[in-house]
Design a protein around this nucleic acid. Structure first.
Lengths: 209, 209, 209, 209
DNA sequence: TATGAATGAGGTTTCATTCAT
DNA sequence: TATGAATGAAACCTCATTCAT
């Protein structure tokens, strides 16, 4: 029993080790430029080993995105579960998004890039399923906050799913857009400030006047 | 002169022909999967010819994106120039996005994909410059509307550039996000409706209460 | 001694277990496509264990072929030892081939595939020696029948080794050829009937007129 | 027109050049051990070029086999068309087989190895079709001779297709079998003599007594 | 003896790009 | 200017084999 447990644990560690190496390499090189050999070297493993844990490059990359999505989801859920006002929740969600962005902006950007049919089409059913589930969980948590706001007659009476879409889309849009702007203009660190402005607008926009 | 002009004209036509072919191929296959040979075949030209007009695949793709961006910019500017209220302008901007999305959803998504450091890093200075200029023009036009709203004390008194970023990011984020949602959930045609909701929130959020 | 014997016995059982698993996998997949991992899984053993019993994949395959060949040889010898006429012996040899083919057609085909320099070149001396011995035993038994026929002035007076080669080659050739014909033309079950015709021709051809 | 023709001709030459290089490499190394890189080097071309003419390694190999099968077929047909007796035709077929074997025994052996479901299953429909057609042409020519012999009441009255199968199978069986025997026993050049014996037996066996 | 995770060499294949015509 | 055959680098991935446990 002890042995089986340890093996299981070792396996998970190895997986995590690969994911971590992949995060570093994908972060600096992007999906296309990164090579499996590089990731293997970074993980201090042989290329073949990577394939024992991940079916192919695409799936390794997606697993990485799922990890950050899961992290995001966990944090969002924590906020939603708190015993605070709807408006405070919205404010804390802002911080969650900012924190996740600051943790690893590149992977977050990849996550948003992943959100396009092109990439999604090539994933294995299991991974796609997991992505769907996590994604809808995160989204569900946001819908909950919105619904609460509508019920308490604080928020405007639009379809809550659509409103949650707007919140999420604004978040991902700001990250993508400002990231590219940052590159084009060689300016730094105004993703955070723009995210703050975005949430001010959104929070204001959701509120019944 | 007549000859030189005609040559110039022919050159532009050929360029347009390639860009149009690229639009079709990139649209259906995405950047990575599309091949130069396919684009050449679609344009009824040989692969070699493509390189007489575009330095490489990356730049062909970017040139295409710039075209879309220029179209977007032109439309945005038209709206901004109109003699209508700020709120009406905002409403018409929504339609600009909807129209472009409906013309070719994939290409708009490709445009957003372009907006990532990974791609931008490999462009030639001229193309990058053009991209910067066009991009800032579109953004400038939106800033103008925002400023007008702030001046007229209709909009909240935040930094206008940041507010313009939020508007742009929200609109583009909705397209990207809802497109992926559509794929994951097999639902169709609610980009338009979500864009409308987004506009409602944004318009409400910008307004001084 | 009892312990040593049991160990020896266990070893042989394990070996047989692997050979049987290999038979199944090679049968359905062919040499190249079959993997050691599949064979290990089929034998309910780990890949490493296979290498305790067989030097490498090639030798496992050859050992399997030798088993088949040994079986064939045993059956051929039984027929030869019988107290029947030469022509009846030839007729019964036909049935030996038919039976082996019907037991597992693929494995017989694999046996013939083995008979090519490419494969033989990579075997260990011991295995090669065993293959030679078994092969020449089977052949020797057939030569015996031929010789008997020649001695009794029933068969034509050609070199008996060459005649035995013709008999063996014709029977194995029919199996291989008709098997491919079956695939190309989607017809079934005429190996048996062709083998019968082959026998008729051979028996007739061997006979002095 | 002259240009198109020359291009066509060049293309065929290039194809032939690759086939010839492949023949050399496959002949000495066998299918598995041979690499595309080696073949490319032998053809004094780059690896990529091979893929402009052949879909993959498998198909290059099969094309080679088809070439020799086509050659064999042509020679068989020539004999069949001659204005000589059936028995002389049979005798000349023997020489055709011997000549082809002596031209390139390795490729001929590969051709017979190809005749197994395993390999056939992976070919493209076109190549498979060509293989089928050529194969049935060669077979058809032999059937013709057999039929003629039966009609003239020289040959035994068995099903001509089955008899042709026996002839063909004996031929391929002798080549395969004796080739392996040659390796096992380190003897050389008795394929030819065994083929002669085989034809003596077959010719005798076909004849009505 | 048995395991099975890890190895890593090496093969096939693709495709952006070039260049002689 | 246009061609398109040829290039060749480089990537992914497989799988027979090993070895520490």
């Amino acid at each position: 029993m002890g042995i089986a447990e340890r093996k299981q644990r070792e396996k998970e560690l190895r997986r995590a080790q690969i994911i971590e190496a992949a995060r570093k390499v994908f972060s600096t090189k992007g999906f296309n430029t990164a090579t499996m050999e590089e990731i293997a070297a970074q993980a201090e493993l042989s290329p073949g080993t990577l394939y024992l844990y991940f079916k192919n490059k695409e799936e390794l990359h997606t697993s990485l995105s799922i990890e950050i999505l899961e992290h995001l989801t966990r944090e969002v859920k924590k906020v939603v579960a708190k015993d605070i006002s709807v408006e405070e929740k919205l404010d804390q969600l802002k911080h969650v998004f900012i924190d996740v962005y600051e943790y690893d902006s590149m992977i977050l950007i990849n996550l948003f890039h992943l959100q396009s049919g092109e990439t999604l089409r090539n994933l294995s059913p299991e991974v796609l399923k997991q992505l769907k589930r996590t994604s809808s969980e995160a989204h569900g948590a946001i819908i909950e906050v919105i619904k609460e706001g509508i019920d308490k007659e604080i928020f405007i009476d639009e379809h809550p799913v659509a409103l949650a879409d707007v919140v999420w889309a604004t978040f991902s849009g700001v990250v993508l857009w400002v990231d590219s702007k940052r590159f084009l203009n060689n300016k730094k660190d105004f993703v955070t400030s723009t995210l703050k402005t975005a949430f001010t607008v959104i929070a204001n926009g959701l509120r019944r006047q």
